Computed example of a mutant assay.
Amino acid sequence: MPIRPRHPDDNPRLLEIWHRAVLATHHFLSEADVDALYGQMRDLYLDAVAISVYVGENGQLAGFIGLTERHVEMLFVDPTQHGQGIGSRLLDDARARLGELTLDVNEQNPAAHGFYRRYGFHDTGRSETDGQGRPFPLIHMAI
């Protein structure tokens, strides 16, 4: 199976995937925002959640999902492999293990919101700010 738990030595590749995916999809973030978030991903977030990785046919990591209990905290796929079903497979694996899931998606990232809706998530609410109180509205979703 191409999905396995994260190993600590996966972190450099996960940071690379995260950075490339954020640059490709989070156009509402400034360069300073991305730099600050990169440090937080490296120093805090990767170790704060349970991460599963998707290993591509070439043996290289192509995406990952991070969960806190049944809440999807992060889902990132290498932008060169968007649209190939990797995100759906990671969600399928999480649902098979955990059942119902929730997540928050940036309102300013309509492609991600559309992906989650196509997958089957539905909107359950909205917040004016992100989890750090910044002016990046979140849409709360569940499946």
Rank of each mutant, 00 (worst) to 15 (best):
V55R: 10
D10A: 06
D47H: 13
G83P: 01
E73W: 03
E69Q: 10
L15M: 10
G66T: 06
L103Y: 00
I51S: 06
P12T: 08
A21F: 00
Q84P: 01
A36C: 09
R95V: 15
Q81G: 00
P110M: 06
V72K: 07
T80F: 09
A48Y: 05
V49H: 11
N106H: 10
T25Y: 03
V105K: 02
E57H: 11
T80H: 11
E73K: 02
E16M: 10
V72M: 08
Y54N: 03
L29P: 08
R6T: 13
L44M: 14
D104I: 07
L103T: 14
D47T: 09
G63P: 04
Q81P: 00
I65N: 11
F28K: 04
I51C: 15
S88L: 00
Q84N: 07
A21P: 00
V77S: 02
T80C: 11
A96P: 03
Q84S: 09
N58C: 13
L14P: 06
D93I: 01
V77H: 09
G56D: 14
F28Y: 10
N11P: 05
H82C: 01
Y54D: 10
H7R: 15
N106W: 06
H71C: 08
A111M: 11
G63D: 04
Y45P: 03
G99L: 04
A62Q: 14
V49Q: 13
G56T: 06
L75D: 03
Y45W: 12
D92H: 12
S52P: 12
G87V: 01
A24T: 02
A112T: 01
H82V: 00
I65F: 09
H71M: 07
F115H: 02
G85W: 02
R20F: 05
F64K: 04
L98W: 11
P8L: 11
V49W: 11
F76N: 05
L91I: 14
T25C: 05
D47W: 10
R13P: 04
A48H: 08
Q81L: 09
P110Q: 03
E69H: 14
L90H: 04
P5Y: 11
E69V: 13
G83W: 05
Y38A: 05
R89Q: 12
N58W: 05
Q60T: 15
